[in-house]
Design a protein around this nucleic acid. Structure first.
Lengths: 212, 212
DNA sequence: CATGTTAATTGATCGCCGGTCAATAGCTTA
DNA sequence: TAAGCTATTGACCGGCGATCAATTAACATG
């Protein structure tokens, strides 16, 4: 009797959600945790628990931890992509200024997320490639107007890659020390960019640049 | 009977070594593996096995995987320290040139080790701090003559940190593409260094520099 | 040469990780 | 109302970093 009553009154053993909704829930839970801690610090068990769900269900929607992380990073990256997309007109330097402003503004609002993302991307090759491809794509837009469409010479390519590293390191320093106004950092990055281009030209005089 | 005979003829169950010797053996085994693969790719079991020893013994000498890795990195870093130590005389730029030459030469000989070290250091905070401290120490020697002993202004500090990031990224590109002579990369790094300093001065005119 | 002491060395075990499997149970539809 | 689909789960796997208690090689002492 009691058993029957209990069974009739019992709540469902679990709630079954539409696929899209469940997937969103899990992706959001993962993104939130990955934004606050690095990749290795978070376990699939924790993510599932945060979403109020069992671990195999998480694996049902994302076949591996790597996949889940990549899905979260991809989403954040495309959000950023929209902000950074350089406007059509203006000189290359103006375009770069606008993109840097948008980029730094986003980082000012999401400092911890940015730091953890960079840290994690250093280890996971796919995530690294994703971030790198996203940047290279942006850089190519700028470079196309700076150097024409010819394939860049090695020294120029290395200098550009170097400047991207400069940007990461300087931004990291900026988020940690917080003693530099955003505009000043932006100008520093811009000046360093021009400096990097001139340094490349100095090393390899065959490099042609039409700076605005 | 057979048992007794076997027991009498049996070799020792293990060979007991002097503490220093055993420690050296284990540290070398770990360093060798960490030089070829990244931190997470290597397990303590593998290291112990490579040294022909049980896992608990490895833990007897190094209380954690982190400790073992740090010991290996520290040793490699102090080896590099000796090479890079800038000579006493000469202008700051000459000192930096010599240090960069030694640094790039070492990397040319130990490319994989350098790449794996950088990758691992990105994740382990202590290793990162160790590498960072080592660089900052070297930079301070150069900066002391460039800017005097006063505490550097934020823009200059950020610019220096940025240049260190530039160096890492450019070197990584260099080791992967292999289409740039070492001297050219060295000159590129030097020119970028000067460019970074000038960029900092441009952003904050209060920065004083006495370049040779 | 025998014997006792010390500590270097080991096999067995722990809790947690990423990942998998077979069984359960909500929802939909005929 | 009964059947079928699949979202969801508890139990489990091998391997990880790390720990413990027991073994035993090497040495000091009589």
């Amino acid at each position: 009797m009691l058993v029957m009553a209990a069974k009739l009154a019992a709540e469902p053993a679990y709630t079954r959600l539409p696929v899209d909704e469940r997937r969103r829930l899990l992706l959001d839970a993962g993104a939130k945790l990955f934004a606050q801690h690095s990749y290795e610090e978070i376990s699939m068990r924790q993510i599932a628990q945060a979403a109020g769900v069992s671990k195999p269900l998480l694996y049902h929607y994302f076949p591996s931890k790597n996949d889940l992380f990549l899905a979260a990073v991809t989403e954040a990256a495309s959000e950023l992509q929209g902000l950074i997309q350089p406007a059509a007109g203006g000189t290359p330097v103006e375009q770069l200024t606008a993109s840097l402003d948008a980029y730094l503004g986003w980082i000012e609002d999401n400092g911890r997320t940015w730091a953890k993302l960079m840290q994690s991307a250093a280890v996971l090759p796919e995530a690294h490639q994703l971030v790198e491809g996203f940047r290279v794509g942006t850089m190519e837009l700028v470079l196309a107007e700076l150097t024409g469409k010819r394939k860049p010479r090695p020294a120029l390519r290395t200098a550009i890659r170097g400047w991207l590293g400069y940007m990461d390191a300087a931004i990291l320093d900026w988020t940690q020390a917080r003693d530099l106004p955003r505009e000043e950092l932006r100008d520093l990055l811009l000046a360093a960019f021009v400096g990097a281009l001139l340094a490349a030209q100095q090393v390899d005089p065959k490099i042609k640049l039409n700076l605005g």
